[in-house]
């Protein structure tokens, strides 16, 4: 090639193969560089845009790193008290059965303080989607032990490693709720590689499609990294996640609709 294309020559509309969804706002993300939350946000908003659901969707943000999700998602949203997002979503969905309602929750929110609300929303088969970002740590409050912190893992409140004899075991909420008749589609995915992102996108799409068909609760866990909380570089954290998180929280569909 005798001419190297300039940036302006490359970024012409006919060369455009990808752009940010219009449903993500221009606000700078509050997440640490390397964190998976941004990708998870993007996949949900892309799906809502592609399915034409913006005017139809009400999201519920949790307490935790994604407490400000409403700053980034250009849809109507309610910010719930810590752990209560599934109850808040139940209130909305029961009164607007034709709207699309989802919660976006972290592991502390969903699997510790909100275990009851999560379990019972799943058990009632609420027609909502729950997106569960599991990074095994409390990120927002500064890296404390979460219900999904792995055995031996060091955190601010388990400085010598999680001792299962006194601190219990990491909770597999996704396997737990998959056993309930109220859940319809339950899957565990990740967003650390392009292939994983594509699979998660499909899972998000299915969750919203099934909701439109009133099939019951759809639950998408996204195992993610917390490079700041884990005190690693983003690359190290992704490697550590593959080697340590995935064996305990294996990726893949856990409950598929019966044909």
């Amino acid at each position: 090639m005798d001419h190297i294309l300039t940036r302006d020559e490359v970024t012409v509309p006919e060369n455009l193969v990808y752009s940010r969804t219009c449903l993500l706002t221009d606000n700078a993300l509050s997440y640490c560089p390397g964190c998976g939350h941004g990708t998870a946000h993007r996949l949900i908003m892309e799906t809502i845009e592609e399915m034409g659901l913006q005017a139809d969707t009400i999201g519920v943000a949790p307490v935790g790193c994604s407490v400000l999700a409403y700053d980034f998602m250009d849809i109507d949203m309610q910010q719930a008290a810590h752990g209560r997002a599934p109850a808040v979503a139940t209130g909305i969905k029961r009164l607007y059965p034709h709207k699309t309602v989802f919660t976006y929750q972290g592991d502390g929110d969903l699997a510790a303080i909100g275990t009851g609300e999560t379990l019972h929303a799943c058990n009632r088969g609420e027609n909502i989607a729950i997106f569960f970002v599991n990074n095994g740590i409390y990120g927002m409050t500064g890296g404390q032990m979460a219900p999904t912190t792995l055995p031996g893992m060091k955190t601010a409140t388990s400085p010598f490693g999680r001792d299962t004899a006194s601190m219990g075991f990491p909770l597999k909420m996704t396997e737990l709720i998959a056993q309930l008749p109220g859940t319809y589609y339950v899957t565990r995915q990740a967003v650390h590689t392009p292939a994983a992102v594509r699979k998660t996108k499909k899972a998000v799409e299915k969750a919203f499609q099934y909701q439109k068909l009133n099939k019951g609760l759809c639950f998408v866990e996204i195992v993610s990294n917390c490079n700041s909380g884990w005190k690693m570089t983003p690359l190290e954290s992704n490697k550590w996640m593959e080697e340590n998180m995935f064996p305990y929280f294996p990726l893949g569909d856990i409950k598929l609709p019966k044909p």
Binding site: Q78, L95, E117
Partner: peptide
């Protein structure tokens, strides 16, 4: 009108929060 028995008083009030936030009389 929707009548729902929740799993706790905590869940009840947060269901009320969700419904009220969406403009309903709850």
């Amino acid at each position: 009108m929707v009548t729902l028995q929740a799993e706790s008083e905590i869940a009840s009030i947060h269901m009320v929060y969700g419904g009220a936030g969406a403009g309903k009389r709850v």
